[in-house]
């Protein structure tokens, strides 16, 4: 138990005297995971809508596939992206391996199924009355879709938050494709793994506490946005 107390103290003092190296590690974590999430949302939500409103064969299969991909192990994604981006791989000419871009690609692959699948669930579980009402009011099919998606926005938001939790906590994929290079591709989780390797348990745990605090701050902020939206709707 003693080391946990030590870690808490260390985490506090680390936050108080935020040094440049730690700050850049935290910012890189946010940049990589944030970019991945942004891309995943930009692709995933329209994809979810397509699966919810579109009428095409194999739709059921697509949904099951997405659900399965939610459970992709990060190391497998890391290895896949590594082989793809390796100089001896098909996309080697892009010279992306061991860069933050490679890490963003890997995390996008991890986040996309979560965003798409949970958004899809949120959209299909919207009360059918909404679509009917919109249709009675003379809305076009695309307007109806927009109304339904609008109604599902809290569920979609939850999906995005779940994906954010996954990519912020993930270490297996970015370790392989990023290489954990000091000052360049070293992020919070890979630093924690490295410090654990080095036996600096208290420091590693302190970093873990900081990571958790950041995730909490972001989730709280998103919740505030959500609640604002909620009260506005009641008016």
């Amino acid at each position: 138990m003693n080391s946990v107390v030590v870690s808490f103290n260390q985490a506090l003092s680390l936050i108080l005297h935020l040094d440049r190296e730690l700050l850049s590690i935290i910012l890189l974590s946010l940049r990589v995971s944030g970019s991945a999430l942004f891309i995943a949302a930009a692709v995933g939500v329209p994809l979810a809508a397509l699966m919810a409103f579109g009428r095409f064969s194999l739709r059921g299969l697509c949904v099951s596939l997405l659900d399965t991909l939610m459970g992709l192990p990060p190391v497998v994604v890391g290895l896949f992206v590594y082989l793809l981006l390796s100089r001896s791989g098909p996309l080697g000419f892009l010279a992306l391996l061991y860069t933050p871009s490679a890490m963003i690609i890997a995390q996008t692959i991890l986040a996309l199924p979560i965003v798409a699948s949970l958004s899809h669930s949120a959209i299909v579980s919207v009360d059918p009355v909404i679509a009917q009402a919109a249709s009675t009011l003379g809305a076009t099919p695309s307007q109806i879709s927009m109304a339904v998606i609008r109604e599902a926005r809290y569920g979609i938001m939850s999906g995005i938050m779940a994906a954010f939790g996954r990519v912020m906590a993930e270490v297996g994929a970015i370790l392989i494709v990023g290489g954990n290079i000091a000052g360049f591709t070293r992020v919070m989780t890979t630093t924690i793994a490295l410090e654990t390797d080095k036996g600096n348990f208290e420091f590693a745990l302190a970093l873990g506490i900081i990571l958790l605090a950041i995730s909490m701050a972001i989730n709280l902020a998103l919740n505030v946005i959500r609640r604002k939206g909620g009260t506005e709707r009641q008016r």
């Binding site: 910012l27 890189l28 970019s35």
Partner: peptide
């Protein structure tokens, strides 16, 4: 406004430059 704020924050995070 909240939406705008969220977007600005997001872009800020993404745009943090690399060396």
């Amino acid at each position: 406004r909240m939406k705008l704020l969220a977007i600005v924050l997001f872009t800020a995070i993404i745009c943090v430059t690399s060396v």
